[in-house]
Design a protein around this nucleic acid. Structure first.
Lengths: 162, 162
DNA sequence: CCTGCACGGTTGAAGCATCAAGTGTAGGGT
DNA sequence: ACCCTACACTTGATGCTTCAACCGTGCAGG
């Protein structure tokens, strides 16, 4: 029988839970309004934009954005229809397909990033304040280690070739 | 032109974003597995269970779980179909409808709560550690004030009658 | 070889969230 | 009395997510 939550713990958890519903909604709203993108689809574009060559295997991309391959596949299909991403087979490895950020996709990211970053700063970074950023980092790191014991901070398994 | 994110800020935000995708997924998975409930539908049941009389106007319930009335209405329809909640008109105020937790719903909450609380403790409370709970509370409070300036901690507008 | 099996990826159906539009009630003005 | 707006919902369509099933490729063992 697990120990129950104390009053202080309960209060902290209630607030935390509220943040977990309201903050994603707020960020999604900003992206939807200004760019017609989901937080998730933006993240996909952003990840590709940071990769040298702006291209990555689907499965690697999936793990970078912490999603199932299925979800990513659907989203990439939509992004492809909008002309921001293209799929191409990987030579020398018939079963991986690469997602590539098109020029139009790059433009989209460039146009969208500043507004989104500003919103993140306003709602999170500045709200927390410079003296507590380290606390935020420590807390989220601690939670991450429980939620994702494998570690999202893994060394990358050197994507050979492609 | 908003100031860009520093390296430390960026690192903290990346981790935070990861937590915001993985933690809800983990909590949802536990509830789905053990009770066949969404985090959101569980929250609805839990809120009703804490109310004296186990009943509340839809709109008040909606604001307690930070959702639109539309979303709540759909969810309550499903919960009603499962026999855990019932809708009834409010006498003396023809336009509010009350959501009531049925006995079966109460049983459901009683059966589900301990497992869920245990998971919250495991993934969040214990991960953060007792000496940092206050930090968690402060940080989430600060973010909440930006995201929801109206304040989720409002004094309740005295639900007259019903 | 070639059989089996795991991996990478796609697809379709079902469930849940969101949005826009609709219903009916309450209350205020004239 | 009458309208007109605001409120408290509900409903239906649309879109995204999840789940299960599927296809083709590579690879290891017999």
């Amino acid at each position: 029988m697990a120990a129950w939550l104390t009053a202080e713990e309960q209060r902290a958890w209630r607030r935390t839970a509220a943040v977990f519903t309201l903050l994603p909604a707020a960020l999604d709203a900003q992206l939807q309004r200004d760019a017609g993108l989901t937080q998730f689809s933006y993240l996909v574009l952003a990840m590709l934009s940071e990769e040298p060559g702006r291209t990555m295997p689907m499965s690697e991309l999936a793990s970078m954005v912490s999603s199932s391959l299925s979800r990513l596949s659907h989203v990439v299909s939509r992004l492809e229809k909008q002309g921001w991403v293209s799929r191409e087979p990987c030579e020398g490895n018939g079963r991986v397909t690469m997602a590539r950020l098109t020029d139009a996709g790059w433009e989209k990211v460039v146009a969208t990033a500043p507004g989104h970053a500003e919103e993140v700063r306003r709602l999170v970074i500045d709200a927390v304040g410079p003296e507590r950023i380290a606390d935020l980092d420590a807390i989220t790191g601690a939670i991450l280690r429980r939620v994702d014991p494998g570690g999202k901070m893994r060394a990358n398994p050197m994507s050979q070739g492609c």
